[in-house]
Amino acid sequence: MRRGRVGLAAILPFLWLALFFAFPFLLVTKLSLSHTVLAIPPYAPQLDLSQGLAGLKVFLDGLDTTTYARLAQDRLYLDAYLSSLRIAAMAAVLLLLIGYPIAYGISRCPPGLRLALVMAVILPFWTSFLIRIYAWIAILKPAGILNAALAGLGLPPVDILNTETAVLLGLVYAYLPFMVLPLYAVLDRQDESLIEAAQDLGATPLAAFWRVTFPLSLPGAAAGALLCFIPMAGEFVIPDLLGGSETLMLGRVIWTEFFANRDWPAASAVAIVLLATLAVPILLFEREQGKVLS
């Protein structure tokens, strides 16, 4: 009986997501099949329901795939598409390599300290993302803190602001908590007696790690990698502030098409392509989360 009542109330968030999350994707799809015009809103055709079915027919006839054809012909979009995926994948690998030792280190600490360390990892995430990325500009710029420190050590200066390296650094920095937390969750849940059993059966501590701890933590690694990869592939702020003009990523392309070029159909078409590409990782992520749920 209680279930029925929860079910009834659940219609609220359900409707909310249907209206504000699912339905708008139809609008994006529709717009990606429209053309740019100099008007407000800056696209055609418009659906005019006052003319009834005839209006719907005129509207449907007005839709076509010319925007996609335009995107396919322009090297810029393809380059941006490929470099988005490449940079997001590289950052995900770096995050795994950096995040794993941190998560593992925390899980080895005494229980009281563990909670405090997890909090310490999350805390920066609570402070403004924009501000944390902005801080890196001050560090990385040619006359910035990094080069001042390098000069102090008698080392040659580096110029990495406005390069792909800076973008990777920013991505790793901003998404690190999202990698550490799922990894920590699986590592912390792991039964200590499994490690003892492995050592009891003759495994050195290192062998026990590789044969037992590591394989059992792979679901957490997958969850963390997906949790980071998907939003990173569409990231805007980090490539925009740290990447300079040479780093092309789809998030920036959508932003530029929309705000600078006022080409709403192109922005929508790029969004649809990105969404279609991310559909598989998103479904994988949902399956991983579903496993955690059950």
């Binding site: 997501l17 699912a22 949790l227 569409g234 805007f236 789809l250 998030g251 932003w255 992520f285």
Partner: peptide, 12 residues
């Protein structure tokens, strides 16, 4: 829907 919102790129 919940998990998709969680990972959806903000620009989209």
């Amino acid at each position: 829907g919940i998990y998709a919102t969680l990972v959806m790129p903000e620009v989209i």
